[in-house]
Write a protein that binds this DNA or RNA. Structure first.
Lengths: 207, 207, 207, 207
DNA sequence: GATGAATGAGTTTTCATTCAT
DNA sequence: GATGAATGAAAACTCATTCAT
């Protein structure tokens, strides 16, 4: 019973933490880190400012937790997509589809994602980078491996460095997502993953 | 002679303005817009704060001027590259090379570039976007035209929408530049543009 | 009991607000609006600057609140004086006495009063004027009415426009108060209201 | 000849000084001392800021010079009015008329006048007061003397202290001028001085 | 002698953070 | 344990004043 009560407490705590992070995500992605005050986050999450400081050391800490959490969710989904027991072409299709889905499901997240992985120096906190970047690098390695396997299995011709191919497909999907973010109607993210894959894989030049 | 003296003054003014913009560029790209104070910019540029306010209405105005100036330089170079009187393949090679050169020449600028074109909602000032985005759109159209012409001239097979191809090559080069920015040694931007073009243009899949 | 506690809080708040307004009144009336900084007010009131901004939107808002509060107190007292159930002569005596008392009770207030009702264009905030002026106009009307009634009741001879008489008595009392403000010893405000009233009401010229 | 040239210089200097004071008067009376910058005055007077500092030690000094000059003009006119070789009643009529004229002729001046003589603590610079006040006191003595003489010459009945009568007539005329300043149409300053004098001098009460 | 560019102290205001209740 | 009032450091911006040309 004390255990149960304790776990109940713990669960309650976690729920509160989530509420704070959700409020922060909404607000940060709407207006940016510097334009949102701790009071605004507290108000949106329906807590007192002091309570937020019980969960997070300071504003930066809250932000880090938020970005890491989102980044985790994101990379987990994509890693699963390329680790499904399919052939390499299907893995890439899964990846393109899954990426579209996660992003579509949470536009706020993309904004944070782009801010963090692309914003370069503008990524508010230098310290944050390393953790996220490492995670991202690991994912890129795995994606490169898909290409490598595909070449080994004679599904793809060996042309470029698999790592570069991984970067290429990452950046093209990102570009599509970025366009979609700007103008969802004008630039829908393709339902059919081959629309994106064809850009990379169909021979373009005659020779 | 009075004319000369006057132009001297003018040149001096412009030089000071440049010094201010340079200081701001360095600092903003190192730490971000919100983490740099006008006093810091003034100190770095070796002026008094008041002097900066003689040249720029306020911090935002300074920032806008900076980003626009950099963005202009950048887009001019790339536009020239794809408008050189060469065949379409050569135009793309020019573009890849030129992009590498401008970026290499000014790393601070890339940081701003990424922040502005990719930072999505995190791009500090909404108003700024429209001007930059428009410029960027125009460039994308021109790049798409290169692909369209290439297809018409039977240099490329018609496979994807030329606009998507433009986005693809833009995003791949950006990805390489971003990698280079993070770790110049580990990820050099290819001297030979074909390394990048091949990713797009060499047939990858067998079928 | 919780109610009591709550009202205690409220009272504490009001007390703080009053402390701030008092500090501001002292300082403004000593040195003028523009020569007093928010930090000075905060220091005098023994609060942090930030705390003042919890009570007043900005410096102007604090000033408006201050002037309105003082102006209210002032006009209420005078209005009461002329609305007492006495004959018209007694009403004027009440008015002269009451004016002396309120002003004597708070010299800082006079300074603000003169600054606001007489300072003409020098009255710092144009917007403020209208509210105060309106209040003042209403009072002048009431004062004029006392003369009108006095004439109707055959207590005064009809000689001048009652409104002008109101202005006259207002300005003479003000003049005495102003003199007293400058040199309280040399120019005491008369204890006996007739000293002032006689100036207006005793025949001066022979004819 | 050098004398002439020098006097020419001197005259030129004085003219410049006047231009500066005029510009300052206009601007100060429009917006108030603290809301006008030295650059604005310089621009209006068509001089460089530095030039103004050749004539006036600082902003305060310029202001003092301005107020003193205006005050001089004002008191000279009024002193002349009451020193004209007329009987006492006519002197007072002259005074009321002259006051209306000088004020009407230069509304900016009134604003400054009220700000200085009535604004009490709000009169920007404490130091200024003494000089102006002295001048004002001298004038009040002279005005009191008119009443005294009038009583001695049996033109007025001895009722109140002549000094108080001087204050009374001063404050009533001021009140009329203040009203006129606020709403020139609604409250014209009487063409006929007796309208004002009657308020003071016609018996009001029956007894 | 006039100029006006440059200065930097000083002002208003915000907001992350603390701590008494 | 939660609260939110109080804090004060730090930011953007202004403007009286100086001084090299």
């Amino acid at each position: 019973m004390p255990d149960k009560k304790c776990s109940r407490r713990e669960r309650e705590k976690l729920r509160q933490r989530q509420d704070m992070l959700s409020a922060a995500l909404e607000l940060f992605s709407e207006k940016g880190y510097h334009n949102i005050s701790m009071h605004e986050i507290a108000a949106r999450a329906e807590f007192a400012v002091g309570t937020i400081y019980k969960f997070f050391k300071n504003k930066e800490d809250l932000y880090k937790a938020l970005v890491l959490e989102q980044s985790d969710k994101f990379h987990d989904t994509l890693t699963q997509a390329i680790e499904a027991p399919d052939d390499e072409i299907e893995k890439l299709r899964n990846y393109v589809r899954a990426k579209g889905e996660v992003f579509r499901a949470n536009a706020s997240m993309i904004r944070l994602y782009f801010a963090e992985t692309r914003g370069a120096s503008f990524n508010i906190m230098a310290g944050l980078d390393s953790e996220i970047r490492e995670q991202y690098d690991i994912f890129l390695q795995k994606l490169a491996m898909v290409f490598e396997e595909g070449i080994k299995n004679k599904r793809f011709k060996k042309i470029s460095d698999p790592y570069y191919l991984a970067i290429a497909i990452e950046s093209i999907t990102n570009a599509f997502l970025f366009l979609w973010l700007q103008a969802p109607e004008r630039h829908p993210y393709p339902e059919n993953p081959d629309v994106i894959l064809d850009i990379l894989f169909k021979e373009l030049m005659d020779s």
